[in-house]
Amino acid sequence: MKNHITQKLGFLGLFLCISITLLFLGAIIFFITARGIKVISWEFLTQVPRSGMTAGGIAPAIVGTFYITLGAILFALPLGLACAIYLCEYSPKGIVVNIIRISINNLAGVPSVVFGLFGLAVFVKYFKFGVSILSGSLTLGILVLPLIISSTQEALLAVPQSIREASLSLGATKWKTIKNIVLPTALPGILTGVILSIGRVAGETAPILFTAAAFYTRGFPKSAFSEVMALPYHIYALMTEGAHPDKQRAIAYGCSLVLLLMVLCISGIAIFIRQRQKGLHG
């Protein structure tokens, strides 16, 4: 009987753990939606800020985030694909692969602000790209590289060895096998990884603090060498800088809701696709 009660209490404890965890998810979404929704309008999404950041919209920040994210993925995707292809398709297992694997794992664990400093020292200062979309994109690209590599690797490993053999036995070269058989088969998995990476990059703030972001720019960015406004940085700046904290706070709610919705939708799609793929393969 005593055992039975301990079990009941234990299970109740576990239930509480997951409830509290999900409660927080609910609370974050609820509070930000409830207060942010009042601010959001067509004008808010499509206009530039006015009256010292207390009125108008956040369009330049949305556009800026779009450019930075696009740049980061364009930079990281080819590198990530090549690395995953090398690890899964070409490399004989051995010391070289171990070194690459360990560096990927460790790169994934580097704090985001350290990437920011690296970007500042290398792209902004050394290559003289300045505080710009280009510097920010490169910095974020490095940050997201491990994520792209590991999700691509997972997708490539899921391709059955038997169809690689079939292709080779027909006299296809290794590269043609990869290009015509392996990559197309792994494509849904690779895309899921890319979508997840987009979600991650779009929300990162610390790496762009000193490499790309500005609290206010006149209008929209003009080239890859322009400073930009970015949604996540904008939230931070609205809360900590500027002259009208109260009015800015309302806009910060709006920004947070836009960013939250964007990231949740992007990640939600990726998580959903991944779950369905797992379901299909048993």
Binding site: L22, G203, E204, I271
Partner: peptide, 19 residues
């Protein structure tokens, strides 16, 4: 539940900070 927990992981840190 599992996707919901994963969703929690995808919320940007600046939003957590704002919250």
């Amino acid at each position: 539940l599992k996707p919901l927990v994963e969703l929690l992981a995808s919320i940007p840190s600046v939003v957590y900070g704002f919250f």
